[in-house]
């Protein structure tokens, strides 16, 4: 059996990759993928905790998180489609709607 700390370590590694991707990439879809990575990093963290403590709550949360992440991806892609139809781009450097 793998030690839960290795699982948590993988989670941290994936989180960092996801964060780096979310900060640096211009393409909105890649940013969405990076965010999915972050979510999965968190899932791994839950699982590591569940194994460590022998508690099923972590497993249950992970199942919920995967389901909600799927819904979130659907909404995210829908937003990008709408964004593309409005601005003809999905480059995050060119779309700055979060002011005013």
């Amino acid at each position: 059996m793998i030690d839960p700390s290795w699982v948590a370590g993988l989670g941290v590694f994936l989180f960092c990759i996801g964060l780096w991707g979310a900060f640096t990439r211009k393409n909105a879809i890649i940013v969405l993928m990076s965010i999915e990575l972050i979510l999965n990093a968190v899932n791994l963290n839950f699982i590591a905790g569940a194994v460590q403590h022998g508690d099923a709550t972590g497993w249950v949360y992970t199942a919920f998180a995967i389901a909600i992440a799927a819904a979130e991806v659907a909404i995210g892609l829908a937003i990008f489609l709408a964004m593309y139809s409005q601005h003809e781009t999905i480059s995050l450097d060119e779309v700055k709607l979060l002011k005013h």
Binding site: L19, A22, F23, L92, H100
Partner: peptide, 14 residues
């Protein structure tokens, strides 16, 4: 600081 870019905000939050 209010750039309007989502990434800047995430960065700040992080």
């Amino acid at each position: 600081l209010t750039t309007g870019s989502a990434r800047d905000y995430i960065m700040m939050a992080a």
